[in-house]
Nucleic acid binder design. Structure first.
Lengths: 229, 229
DNA sequence: CCAAAAGTGTTTATGATACACCCATGA
DNA sequence: TCATGGGTGTATCATAAACACTTTTGG
């Protein structure tokens, strides 16, 4: 075994982002239509290459920002994909990240520049390379994550109704939930703040708006409380 | 954004292996004493660099084989570590893998060549670079994995007693389990095969040896059964 | 006055936990 | 005969799941 660094092969390191959004009913992903080879014209995840001056988290944030104009969102490293010929042009290892963003907040000019489009996860087109695998893995990780941590609020506006929250969880988990059990569970967690405001759009009666109380959650978490949906 | 591949920075891609073993009482990791710079003489994980001709899984297996002489063990990709200066010599991104092996089966000549040594996880020395972080993450992943999949049998001989199995889970989870509840749960899973043989080493009465019935598990899993310890 | 969504508790079932004694055997 | 670990079942508790009616109000 040779331990000298300079005799080693180097590889291109890419970062691909699975960008999740939610639009009242369905979980969505943001895809771009490639305007460059290879596979020009096909749909793919937004990606880019790692620079010498940044780590992978920074690269993922930069790439997300390029496409959406958004910073400071929930992002998590998913997995590194490395099949030798996964990219036909050059040996490239890709580290996949997934992000949760509020679809309302992205910069539409930018996404238009990239011919990006939101797709329901159930209706997304076939993607290039191994990107379909990445998406599949991202959904599975997201399901696990949302059931063990208060992750997902990033997909909603700051103030949201219980029904919106429930629909979001249903979209992520891919199953219907019981309304009363859901509310009981969420209330038992005691990490939401009920505002006095009502959302009047979805019904005549109106429904109360809630906010995620991150500080409260952090205090409880530090105190040994463990989130479990 | 530039899409040409050849204008991009390349990086060294390393693979580091967290190698877990179990010796009747304690969860252990196999560490090597570095005989090369940087940090010569310090303890570290076994690692190596990705070659052009292999993917990360293959690299991890190759590296594990180099140190232990073992092939075909349970291995799982953990996470990619990429802090810009994590390796002082050169920009290196390291993909961590963890493996579960039966400590009885490794090749001691090889491990001696590398000045490798087994440490109880609670007594392991400080490691170079970010390897401590890797180990911590590996333990946490291992705990999750063992409680949702029949993973861990790899740490035991093919035939094992209920008590050994329980001790193994206790070592991984870091907590004592109730003997009766444990056996009830394992039996309810119905994925072990009870042999007629007894292990006579640990007691005068002797205790029955069991084997993991992988085929049975696979059939059940394909049928929607989900492992839950 | 009625359609449409909001809000609200209790009962039942299931799974998790706690717990103690007899058995077999070699020394 | 006794010390050591092996083996076994039940009762209780906690959490999850099932379930239906009343309220509000804009049209």
């Amino acid at each position: 075994m040779i331990h000298s660094y300079n005799s080693q092969d180097k590889a291109l390191l890419a970062v691909d982002c699975i960008i999740f959004g939610f639009d009242k009913e369905e979980l969505k992903i943001l895809l771009i239509k490639r305007d460059f080879e290879p596979q020009k014209g096909k749909w793919s995840l937004m990606g880019g290459f790692l620079k010498r001056s940044e780590d992978l988290d920074q690269a993922a944030n930069r790439i997300l920002h390029h496409l959406t104009g958004i910073n400071n969102v929930y992002m998590e490293q998913l997995y590194s994909f490395s099949k030798v010929n996964r990219d036909p042009v050059e040996r490239t290892v890709s580290v996949a990240y997934y992000a949760l963003i509020n679809t309302e907040e992205h910069n539409e000019e930018l996404t238009q520049q990239y011919s990006a489009k939101w797709f329901n996860i159930s209706e997304a087109p076939e993607l290039i390379f191994d990107h379909d695998k990445m998406v599949k893995k991202a959904i599975s990780r997201l399901r696990y994550r949302t059931s063990t941590m208060p992750v997902g609020f990033e997909l909603l506006p700051q103030k949201f109704t219980m029904r919106q929250l429930q629909k979001m969880y249903e979209a992520i988990l891919g199953e219907k939930l019981d309304k009363r059990n859901f509310i009981n569970k969420i209330n038992a967690l005691d990490i939401l703040h009920k505002t006095n405001e009502k959302d009047m759009e979805s019904s005549k009666k109106g429904s109360f708006l809630y906010m995620f109380d991150e500080e409260k959650y952090k205090r409880k978490a530090a105190d040994g409380f463990s989130f479990k949906l």
